[in-house]
């Protein structure tokens, strides 16, 4: 069972990675506007991004 010494810290590290990914997304403003992007992805003709 000594594998626990590796697996347990690994689980914690995974959790830290997940939380940091979420924080990164929040800081980039990905959760600020929850309505528009859902529609924006349906626009398929041209792109307006510069």
């Amino acid at each position: 069972m000594s594998i626990l010494y590796i697996v347990l810290p690994l689980a914690v590290v995974l959790a830290v990675i997940a939380v940091s990914a979420f924080c990164w997304a929040v800081r980039r403003g990905q959760f600020d506007d929850l309505d528009s992007p859902a529609w924006r992805m349906l626009d398929d003709d041209d792109t307006t991004r510069g």
Partner: peptide, 15 residues
């Protein structure tokens, strides 16, 4: 940007 030349980007927050 397609209607008014010189506009680079317009982003609307619908809510």
């Amino acid at each position: 940007p397609r209607i008014a030349a010189g506009v680079i980007e317009a982003r609307l927050a619908l809510g």
